[in-house]
């Protein structure tokens, strides 16, 4: 995870509870430390982000209490992706 995306993930954590209360199930778009908006679909969020900032890394996330982890049963020990602790 890039430093920018780590910052955006931290920004998300600071606004998550407020946005969850108002926009549960929708998608938030964050750029740096700024919350750009909340959108009905992830595609809408990305299109808005790309139009504003060009084709750059963006942070979008669905507003749910707890995201179910994706499973990847076939990854063998010692062959995992970048190890960034999940927020709790």
């Amino acid at each position: 995870m890039s430093a920018r995306l780590a910052m955006e993930s931290a920004t998300f954590e600071t606004v998550k509870e407020r946005l969850l209360a108002e926009h549960r199930g929708k998608f938030v778009l964050i750029h740096g430390s700024e919350v750009i908006g909340v959108f009905d679909t992830q595609g809408d969020a990305l299109v808005e982000g790309y139009r504003r900032f060009g084709y750059v890394d963006l942070f979008t996330k669905r507003l749910v209490r707890r995201e179910r982890p994706l499973t990847l049963a076939s990854v063998p020990p010692g062959r995992r992706g970048s190890k960034v602790p999940a927020p709790r």
Binding site: L5, S9, F59, K61, L70, L72, A73, V75, R80
Partner: peptide, 8 residues
Amino acid sequence: AAFEVQTA
């Protein structure tokens, strides 16, 4: 950025 993945 927030794909949370559970491996074996």
